[in-house]
């Protein structure tokens, strides 16, 4: 182990020395003028059309109607994990200590999203929302509940909104998992969720 440690240290010093020797004169960090990206658009409509563009489904709905709506969309879902108090459909009790391998056969996961981005239909989901990090990925179908007042215009604004979070794990999710690796044919449902429904409340 000692040998390895020494080698690692050498790598670090050697790299830093080499950068010092080879780097150019200091160049300034640019100041971002966000007004250059301003557009007078309807955030909600743009968000909706971008969710559709990336292969997701979106619906505006009353909180009280969530369970009924989900029963209609996913009539065959039996193994359901709900990480939100806004739905009572969960059939599998779990906590943040649950081994994610136990989720391998779940049909549906329901989580809350924190913010939506209108330019690309992405929704920020952190492990505060999903409790188990693997949940939004390992589930067959994914539902994200999002408050429509939490939609922002673009990614720069999105990073302002999440800057004070407790940083452990978080992900922008834009649509269901997909691939075009076979002859450029788009196939929805690669390794992550096969479908994504965003419920706007």
């Amino acid at each position: 182990m000692n040998g390895t440690k020494k080698e690692i240290k050498m790598g670090r010093e050697a790299i830093l020395q080499s950068i010092k020797k080879n780097k150019p004169e200091a160049l300034p960090m640019p100041i971002i003028d966000e007004s250059a990206f301003y557009e007078d658009i309807d955030l909600l409509n743009a968000f909706k059309s971008n969710i559709a563009l990336v292969g997701g489904t979106i619906k505006e709905i009353d909180v009280a109607q969530i369970d009924n709506e989900l029963k209609t969309i996913y009539p065959k879902a039996n193994h359901i994990v709900s990480a939100t108090s806004k739905s009572t459909l969960g059939t599998i009790p779990f906590s943040k200590e649950t081994d994610p391998h136990l989720f391998k056969d779940i049909d549906l996961a329901i989580v809350e999203g924190e913010i939506g981005v209108s330019e690309n239909g992405a929704v920020w989901v952190s492990n505060t929302n999903s409790l188990v990090r693997a949940l939004p990925f390992i589930t067959n179908d994914l539902v994200i509940i999002l408050n429509k007042s939490k939609i922002c215009i673009h990614m720069l604004h999105a990073y302002d909104l999440i800057k004070d979070r407790d940083r452990d794990f978080g992900v922008f999710i834009s649509g269901p998992s997909k691939t075009a690796d076979i002859e450029q044919c788009l196939v929805v449902g690669a390794h992550g969720a096969m479908s994504l429904t965003v419920l706007l409340i």
Binding site: N50, L53, D168, S174, S177
Partner: peptide, 15 residues
């Protein structure tokens, strides 16, 4: 695409 499906931010190892 306007963004990749997943943009994952790994800041801390899971417990």
């Amino acid at each position: 695409q306007p963004i990749t499906t997943y943009s994952s931010h790994f800041n801390k190892p899971d417990e």
